[in-house]
Amino acid sequence: MAHNLVFFYGFAALAVVSTLLVIAQPNPIYSVLLLILSFVALAGLYVMLDAPFVAVTQIIVYAGAIMVLFLFVVMLLNVSHEHAVADNQAASDGGGPTVRWFGAILAGVMAVELVWALNRSRSVGAALAGAERETAWSVEEIGRILFTRYGFAFEATSVLILVAMVGSIALAGRHLSGKKAWRR
């Protein structure tokens, strides 16, 4: 079982370090690639939590589709270091370091508060001991629950996807048919 703890700390450290670098990175391309690394670490944690199907979905859908979409946009807009520098200059006449420090302090306070509060949840974990299953959830079991108890939510999700698709085409694809066609 100590074996398990080593994996937990390994994946957790990988996730925390790569997420920190995502935030600290001036170049968005590296941010996107590091976020993929963080998602892979989280997928490892999901496997440890007996959710292998979610782990695979995380890799395929998040790392494979959503992050590639981000990468496409970063490369399409061609935002490089020059833009980052210009953005920092623009930020300094808007907010400046005071606002930035305020944000950093707020985030630090929130981190301390959350860790303090969640550390007290140890008794909850102890109360739940023994409830966990011995085996991982299979795709069949998850599919059965998804299409019976959560069938309505599943259908509503398809409508949400359709709305997002129509919205993004209306927002980003208006040059395809020319501005006049859009105004009409």
């Binding site: 925390v16 997420t19 935030i23 959350l114 949840s121």
Partner: peptide
């Protein structure tokens, strides 16, 4: 075996990093 509060603290730390970003 990593307990529930380990995962919750990791989740809180990651969430705070998102807020900081």
């Amino acid at each position: 075996m990593a307990a529930l509060n380990h995962y919750l603290i990791l989740s809180g730390v990651l969430f705070t990093m998102g807020v900081a970003g």
